[in-house]
Amino acid sequence: MRQVAIITGASEGIGAELARQMARQHGADLALVLAARRQDALQAVAQECETFACTVLVQICDVGEESACRALIDACITRFGRLDILINNAGVSAHALLEDVHDLQWYQDVMRVNLWGSVWCTHAALPHLKASRGRIVAVSSLAGLVGVPGRTAYSASKFAMNGFFEALRIELKPAGVSVTLAYPGVVATRIRYHGYNAQGQPAGVSGLKEENAMRVEECARLILRGMQARQRDVVMTFKGKLGRWLKLLLPGVIENIALAAVKQDMGPKNRA
């Protein structure tokens, strides 16, 4: 039976690569619903996937709007009649010191996209995923396991996302629906360049050191492997796994490591 999967944030970066790899692996046995805000970019990804005989539905969706999230699930069910996999990948980045932020509206926008977009999509998809004993993937971040200076808005949204999906995982265990939380570190995508700065504008630069950024192909491969195995968590790097335990045992050490990951000119300032 052909499986049906939804990927949010599928127009570029991790989401687009997840779509390509899934299409390559499953071909005609897979139907993909690709969701994002930019139709031209989505169509380009869809064309790549269709070369592997995969059926693709493109759906314009801003996950920061509840009605758009619910319309996404409705479009999938109307077209394919079922849903087996929901990958909550859409997200927005941000890098700013709290003391430099004068209007916190964009903090709410980050939470709306990163947390509520996933909540709304998952809530609408729930009966269909229970019917198929399907899979849910939530693409979080290492910044959702360890707070990173200059990323208060982003870390808060990802910590909240983790709590939601950890609780949901237990709720859905009797129904046979798996919930996989993925924790990428720094991945070679443009998400941080598109994210918010202190003024709530597109940053145009990354506030993190990216010399050893993970290739997006490797990140997507690890997420899909974890999803297929119905793993609870996918922590992708040795530093990430180590940091998770050091936070419990030596919190001061992990705070220094987090500080070192931030570019010098983007880090906390000592002000008189």
Results as ranks from 00 to 15, higher is better:
R133N: 06
A23H: 11
L208W: 11
A160Y: 14
V110G: 01
G200E: 03
R112L: 12
L250S: 04
K173A: 15
T180N: 00
R271D: 02
A10N: 12
A272E: 15
L86K: 02
Q39C: 09
L97V: 08
S132W: 03
D62Y: 04
K158E: 04
K241N: 12
L242R: 06
G163D: 14
G27D: 11
A125R: 05
L72Q: 02
S206R: 02
L259N: 12
R244E: 02
F164A: 09
I6L: 00
R79C: 04
V137A: 01
A16K: 13
A160Q: 09
E65M: 06
D100I: 01
A272M: 09
S132R: 13
Q108S: 13
H102N: 12
E218R: 07
A94M: 13
G207Q: 06
C219V: 08
V186G: 03
G9F: 08
A143N: 11
Q47S: 15
I6H: 01
D265S: 14
H194M: 06
L129E: 08
L129G: 06
P268D: 02
N89R: 03
H102I: 04
D40T: 15
A35C: 08
A53I: 08
A153V: 07
V253A: 01
K239P: 00
G81A: 00
V146W: 12
F80E: 00
N89Y: 04
R190E: 14
L181D: 04
Y183P: 06
C69K: 05
V234D: 00
S67W: 01
E17R: 14
L242E: 04
Q59K: 14
I136H: 00
V45N: 00
H128C: 01
V234W: 09
V234I: 08
R271I: 15
N197Q: 03
D100Q: 10
A156T: 15
A23M: 11
G134F: 05
A46Q: 13
L142D: 02
Q59D: 00
L181Q: 11
A153K: 05
W116D: 09
A261E: 15
R38H: 15
G185A: 03
R37F: 05
V139C: 02
V216P: 02
P268K: 09
T78R: 09
T189L: 01
Q21M: 06
L181K: 08
R230H: 15
E50L: 10
R192M: 07
R24F: 13
A36C: 09
C49E: 08
A258E: 01
K269V: 12
L222N: 08
G27F: 04
L246S: 07
E217A: 12
